[in-house]
Amino acid sequence: MKGVRYYPGFLPLTVLCLVILYAPLIVVMAYSFNGSTSITKWGGFSLRWYVDVFTGPDAGRFGQAAWNSLTIALMAATSATVIATAAALAMVKGGRFRGKGASFALINLPLMVPEIVTAVASLIFFTAIGLTTGYGTILVAHMAFCIPFAFLPIAARLEGIEGSYEQAARDLYATRAQAFRLILLPLLAPGLASGWLLAFIISLDDFIITNFVKGAGMETLPTAIFGSVKQGIKPNIMAISTLMLAVSVLFVTAAYLINRKGQKTP
């Protein structure tokens, strides 16, 4: 079979796609180190906008928003991981039961529903049951939509763990609980970690749903950035964006590495 390089036109096309994908990100990252107040003219390398993020006039607002984002992401990712683990155990290790296919579809459906629909539906739901929108409703919404993201790596990992490990543990006098804690859980750990990290990033990054259910005066980092951009882009936004990008890359890399390591010694 011919290598990919033998297809004429493939290389320029690939380069074009990569440029379209990454050029904006590179511009934002580069200009976050701009020394001038302009967002288009280069005024020499400087860290002033990073200093501005933490000490400037908007520092308080962004600080609060970042804190909200972080705490919501931590709690949402953790609870989504617990729920997704229970679901994955039932789906993968629970043997055959009625409605298994339907359950699988139900768990993963949110990945396919347009986010704006989920956002509107969540707002209607919270209003209907009389919840005041705010920190709490953001948290509940995030817990819910993070579940499928946590579920996928956990279920995939669980599929790869043969039933004979648990049986061997039970055979060697372990109770069900001991077999789960001492054998299944450690073997599942890489899946749990990558599921949690993925859920965390998805929550940290969410804008549409958050924007609908956040209520007045409550901001997460993405909604705060959006609010700020509406009044014109200031260079400090580029610094915040670059910081968020760094956190995302860090987490995704961690998830990838953990999963790969897990695969080498199953």
Binding site: E162, Y165, A168, A169, R170, D171, T175, L187, P266
Partner: peptide, 29 residues
Amino acid sequence: EPNRRPVNTVFQHYALFPHMSVIDNVAFG
């Protein structure tokens, strides 16, 4: 239940616990 039967099994594909050392595997029961 299997853990209440004084019977042990050597599995076809061994089913050694991959995250435990050899001695921990042997000492598990």
